[in-house]
Design a protein around this nucleic acid. Structure first.
Lengths: 337, 337
DNA sequence: AAAAGTAATGCAAACGTTTGCATAAATTGG
DNA sequence: CCAATTTATGCAAACGTTTGCATTACTTTT
């Protein structure tokens, strides 16, 4: 089927394609009468603008490119939902790509974003990424970039994330107030800024509470498959542990599984607290006390910020730190002194 | 920064843009010598093709459009992973959109796919969709469509999914073999073909095993928030129930939660089996016996099929039914007769 | 009534590629 | 050595939109 173009409408009405274009765009130079007629015939013929041609003429498309290291069932779905909500609100399509946590692929995909004429890029950096030059270059020369969730320590790159250190501190403080003195923390890949931030918040809070060498209480899990091994080490090193902090939902559910497998009851034998977007905590039993971090909000705000930069309405490139809030459920026991 | 175009390369080498285009495309008309020189200068200048211009000239882009009703943490992430794997392998970008399970939005997005010049569409239909005319029209006039996971009973539209009825039968047969005679089934929105198929498989299997009125054992949950209410009804109606079948991961984890909340032990007090892509079953405890349905495979095959249709290599529009396999873990108890 | 201004529209180029056709140069055959 | 063929390249149009700059037809001012 041949697609209807501006020329077809123009031909029907005996006006020029330019007039039709302007009429549909609501240009004030066009008389109300023709605007009407154009709108009618466009509807009648079922005209659909060719966004490819438009993008070519305008020298840049309207699509946002979303680059994620991977897609798992935790946090990412809600974040994508938020991204989509904001993108739809402002009429931007979203193209999604996965880097599989590979630096080389992250670079390739940024180049690909150039080829596609992306209006802007939402990037969650890969585990392997420690050099941000490809990103700064892209954002300087080509299109705005906003980092999301897995952000970097690069001040010139705006990022949207929670204050991970604070979230970890809040968790530790809460456990401490509940009487826990023997607290373990489970963290993801230490390569990632996000892991380091949460770990340092955790350690600082323990240190300030008077613990010496809080690093002893930290367990790092680069790949989720390593968890059972790390968990065994944890059991050997901290047999008296009364509470666990996990820095993500993924660590939570797998740690939960290990705990139940060892016959430990939550929270009678051991307490657990996590950072979460609030889904997993509700389908585990008992419901898991957590520091709530909305994936939807992160996605929505990052996209809104990016669109602001794309349209030029928002020039400031400061990042955004989202609040995280304690959500007290049933997985932490209060110890009597 | 100005992007490098074919003309820039052509200017440097004193050849025409046409020659450069052909050289880079590997056209055999171009001499080996110039092909070399072109390749070198292209690399030197950092040429990146403008895919927008290419799409305009070719009258259709290379992007695949993925339309999903929603994005949750179950099944969808793996499916997207599979889609991305196949799309990358063949060099197709993927644009993702969500319908929020609204029919009107599904239609809008299909139109939008036209505007974007999609090469093909992967569609998982919304809960509200019962009329497929917009889809058949699109696939007839514009670009190929492959339905995925949430498919329709429309023979002219190729779909990739599991044999849901068979999966449900397998689950029932297994429970029956384990000695269970009082089996309940939990199903999603009955509007969806996928729910109806699984439910009918469930009922048929129970019927063939000798149960009268197997519909009594079916519980339908349109919105996951309704689950607690439906679960209460289940407890009243089937107090002697010894085993539960859930048709999806989402139903599984929430049912699991309700069971534990009521103090029921799995599998001592009650057995549970589900259809799953094999993630949730491993992080719950005990590990959940399930009929395994790979989301990755579904996504990968659907995308491969779509690309085959796009490139014209694969003309046949028959759907694909993926195998589902029993994975025996620890959540089903064998009852002694 | 001529000059100046305003309103509505058209012309044509441009965005970067691709491709049918023409052409030029090199090679072959007679 | 000329004609026929092959090989390599260029020209120009096309894809559908947008937009600066004319142009036309009115209306207002002097």
């Amino acid at each position: 089927m041949k697609r209807i173009t501006l020329k077809d409408i123009a031909g029907r009405l005996d006006v020029s394609p330019a007039t039709v274009s302007r009429a549909l765009a609501g240009n004030s130079l066009i008389s109300e009468a023709t605007r009407q007629r154009v709108a009618e015939t466009a509807a009648e013929l079922g005209y659909q603008p060719n966004l490819t041609a438009r993008a070519l003429r305008r020298k840049s498309g309207s699509a946002l490119v979303l680059i994620l290291p991977e897609i798992n069932g935790f946090f990412v779905p809600e974040m994508i939902f938020g991204i989509n909500a904001a993108a739809r609100k402002f009429g931007f399509p979203v193209m999604m790509f996965l880097t599989d946590n590979q630096f080389s692929r992250e670079k390739e995909l940024l180049e690909y974003a150039v080829q596609l004429g992306a209006a802007g890029v939402l990037l969650s950096i890969s585990e392997e990424t420690s050099d941000y030059e490809h990103i700064t270059r892209f954002s300087r020369d080509l299109a705005p970039v906003v980092l999301i969730d897995k952000t970097a320590d690069a001040p010139e790159l705006p990022g949207v994330t929670i204050n991970g250190a604070q979230a970890a501190r809040d968790a530790v403080d809460y456990l401490w107030r509940c009487g826990h003195r023997n607290i373990a923390g489970f963290f993801g890949n230490p390569q990632l800024t996000i892991s380091r931030r949460r770990k340092s918040g955790f350690c600082e809070a323990l240190g300030e509470a008077g613990m010496s060498r809080p690093e002893r209480c930290c367990f790092e899990v680069s790949q989720i498959l390593e968890l059972p091994g790390v968990f065994s080490r944890f059991r050997e090193n901290m047999p008296e542990c009364t509470a666990i902090f996990t820095m993500s939902d993924e660590l939570l559910v797998h740690t939960y599984h290990e705990l139940l497998r060892k016959g430990l009851r939550i929270p009678e034998d051991i307490s657990i607290i996590t950072v979460s977007d609030g889904f997993a905590p509700y389908y585990l039993f008992p419901n898991i006390t957590h520091i709530h971090h909305s994936g939807f909000e992160a996605g929505y705000h990052a996209t809104q910020k990016l669109i602001g930069m794309v349209t030029g309405e928002n020039r400031e490139t400061a990042g955004l730190t989202l609040p995280a809030k304690l959500c007290e459920l049933d997985s932490v026991r209060t110890l009597s002194p």
